[in-house]
Design a protein around this nucleic acid. Structure first.
Lengths: 191, 191
DNA sequence: ATCAGCATGTAAGGCGTTACATGATTCA
DNA sequence: TGAATCATGTAACGCCTTACATGCTGAT
């Protein structure tokens, strides 16, 4: 398996539960996973191909009842071992790139309204995403008796908790920047 | 300027305030910015070189009082325009890769203790980072009368607010997964 | 004397995205 | 009939990291 290609682990994790096509994998990634990891066809298909060569997955053609042929992938024992080995490594790269914060940090190069506008835009995005996450949460709460669903539930609540924190921050940030604009000088914004 | 190379904007943002060497830029990025953006020498030096060709920055040699020569970069008017143009684009790519959540999502492939251990490792990291952010915050509160410091302050409070949300989540997640004895001591989330 | 930090770069290579290319099926 | 979705890939290219290469300066 490629040394640092995390998409491999995403695929193995998904295949651990069921056999899937490359297209299916893309759809799964675009669901709840997309809040903390992304993947494109251009990375999925080559990864599947490489992993087959390494013996981590096996491919087979689905029964075609007159329909178009699909290529399904199945995780091998070696693939399961690789997945578990990864889970057992404590080290995890949480790599965050917030362009919104970058723009805010350098906000002094523009005017106050621009910074406010960028926060509002971020806030709208977060609200939309939060609504989706809440629907995921509601659906998962109905099926929490199944073991894996607890893990899914926890990732969704992570998203909800952090997004709610984002919204509170947006509110306060908006007031602080609004205040600066209103009162001109450095009003005391200490908490 | 390269189409999607965000390091260019980080550099322009930093140069907007003062002339810096490539080495200085790296140090700045490794400070408060590193919580939401990263950069290596291998990306900084080529970016400076390219931007000079495009006329966004100008380089000059610092006065050498017998010391080793430094190459300082200065932002041009064209560079300032590029920076402002970027600030005025609402669209911002917030690209998050949480390997911790990926491991948790696929936790069903391992055992419960592994998932708990991974959350605990994440928690320790967050606590360390949070301590650093709180120091930044305290220092910024002393100098909030300067315009730019409000922007720095807001990015730091963003980090603190979300990290505090992370810790609360870690606590609840630990309890749900059954690690009460390990997580019961309570995260430090004083406000 | 040696080690950490200052300082500037290059090279190799990996990872990933976007766009392209193709074609079947399903539904309005 | 046309659009959306299903389905599988390849190609070009860009961004970035890691490691390498080099050498000075200041402190202990």
């Amino acid at each position: 398996m490629a040394k640092d290609r995390k998409i491999d682990l995403v695929i193995l994790g998904l295949l651990f539960h069921e056999d899937l096509t490359g297209y299916d994998i893309k759809k799964r990634i675009d669901g709840a996973i997309s809040f903390f990891w992304k993947g494109s066809f251009g990375s999925i298909y080559p990864a599947l191909s490489d992993m087959e060569k390494f013996g981590l997955v096996e491919k087979y053609r689905a029964e075609t009842n007159g329909r178009r042929e699909k290529i399904l992938y199945h995780i091998t024992d070696k693939g399961i071992d690789a997945l578990k080995e990864w889970l057992n490594v404590e080290q995890a790269a949480n790599d965050l790139k917030y362009e919104t914060l970058l723009k805010l940090y350098f906000g002094g190069a523009g005017d106050n309204d621009t910074a406010l506008k960028n926060i509002r835009y971020f806030e709208e995005q977060v609200k939309r995403d939060l609504a989706v996450l809440r629907i995921y949460k509601e659906n998962l709460e109905k099926v929490l008796d199944q073991k894996d669903h607890v893990y899914y539930y926890l990732t969704v609540t992570f998203g909800i908790d952090t997004y709610e924190a984002y919204l509170k921050w947006c509110d306060r940030a908006g007031k602080i920047l609004g205040g600066v604009q209103h009162f001109g000088d450095g009003a005391d914004i200490r908490q």
